[in-house]
Amino acid sequence: MLLVILVLMIGGAIFSLEARDLLSAVVAYGIVGFGLVICFLILQAPDLALVQIVVETITLIIMVAVILNSTRKELGVKWASKTVAYIVGSFVFLILFMYFFEKVTSVLSVFGEHLLRMSEAYIEPGAKDTGSANLVTGVIFDYRGYDTLGEATVLFTAVMGVLTVMRLKGRKEE
């Protein structure tokens, strides 16, 4: 099930690179994002899936709005023999990579069944230590508080950067 969605996501990503029309490229890019949502749900991470589905929807809306305002011209690019060679090479690499990935990961224990000693120290006393019923929130705001502070700071810096770069006209003197 996970593998099918992963293959679909890779196909969507490749199509969005090769699409002639910008709008269809964006829609194909949406396959990647919403496929990731299903992946998170299968891997039992509802917190991440919630964030991913909202962010993906908003980015898709903004990108479609931007593309509808642009010229959206098709490029008359012909496929050179070099391009074909690159694509064939990528596919061979991809198939080999998937083969060895399967072979290596089949040795490991199943995802989520075996606990590390490190994670046991968080999972067992987690609810008692933090008082939070949702362990994820308990980890990100209590055990890993500095991480969250850093993430919030990164977001703040990103907004400052966008405001600085996007402001084409200077601020008026009042």
Binding site: S132, N134, T137, I140
Partner: peptide
Amino acid sequence: HGHLTPGG
């Protein structure tokens, strides 16, 4: 409900 249910 971030500390009770998925989300935050």
